[in-house]
Design a protein around this nucleic acid. Sequence first.
DNA 1: GCTTAAATTTACCGATCAGTTAATTAACTT
DNA 2: AAGTTAATTAACTGATCGGTAAATTTAAGC
Lengths: 188, 188
Amino acid sequence: MRPSKRDELVEKALEVFYHNGFHATGMDMLAARTGISKTSMYKHFRTKEDLILAGLRLRDKEFRLWLFRRMEELGSTPRSQLMAMFDALKEWFAQDGFRGCMFIKASAEYQEASDPIFKLSADHKRLLFVYVSELAARAGAAEPEALARRLLILKEGAIVTAHLRLGENPAKDAKAVAKILLAEALGS
Amino acid sequence: MRPSKRDELVEKALEVFYHNGFHATGMDMLAARTGISKTSMYKHFRTKEDLILAGLRLRDKEFRLWLFRRMEELGSTPRSQLMAMFDALKEWFAQDGFRGCMFIKASAEYQEASDPIFKLSADHKRLLFVYVSELAARAGAAEPEALARRLLILKEGAIVTAHLRLGENPAKDAKAVAKILLAEALGS
DNA sequence: GCTTAAATTTACCGATCAGTTAATTAACTT
DNA sequence: AAGTTAATTAACTGATCGGTAAATTTAAGC
């Protein structure tokens, strides 16, 4: 079945928010870009915040699905899958329209710890942590959670660096560090 | 001599922008918070963007001054100063009012590569890179720029992680990776 | 004390913000 | 085809956006 109007709205809104920012994107602009009238949008979502949250939930699902699948495709063992995270990042950075991490940006505009948008952003990162921890455990790490935290610091750093267009290949740099890190944690 | 009205304005505006975001902070709100009327503000700055840029330039200077001085205070050799960067970060993260990196946030709200705010944010990071590269060279790194890029990826990752309040001590995690990295690059 | 210029204030500009009301169109039921 | 309901629209709300014009206060020069 074809996507509902509501799903179309969320998808398109997400795209505009990503490209343009949250506060900088008004509901009128979204109406113009989606071809859906404002009143219809407010039929589906009570507030702009609700629409943003729906967009972020979609992004969370899509991004994790994409990243985890790509890691599994590019790596055959838990250890090589961890390494492959940085190959996947490299692909992402090269996509045109890449503008950094949606959740870093969301948490930059909605900073209150109690803000649902901030919370959802942190939750996304925690779900990544769960997956990477699991993988680190299966790779035989003595402290899988510590290893996961460190790998994810590299990931976040690479994303920020890529977004600011510093360095030629932040994913490659991060991967080089990850290699050393895994050698230390799992043996070379 | 006491700070000029203009400097007071920039300082206070910077603080509000940092806490509240850029688009979310209106000029009327700044007038209310600083006690300076809007017309006076526009005497000093032609546009809101100019005020933001002045704030970011101040932050750039202050932050680099603070970080570099702290690294020199906490470390006696180039190598230990590189390590001390993460001790300084830990101090920063623990300050109340810490809300992540001003420049990451600025570049999240002003994403166009041609935007002066985006450019200034990237320039700030490049100045950090120059300093860390220099230090890496003096520490005897065979590829000081590669080492600097990698250490700074750890720095950015730690900042983002701390801002989202993931993990207990991202600075410590990043430092642990830095230690391994330096051992590999400079010998243990 | 008077004049002049600089700094500050109040009040306002049109545009846009998130969100709503009332009228219209489209779709389904019988 | 008529009647009912659901979806959509244009037009509007008060508030706020970035920015300004004209009036008022403050300060300086003589």
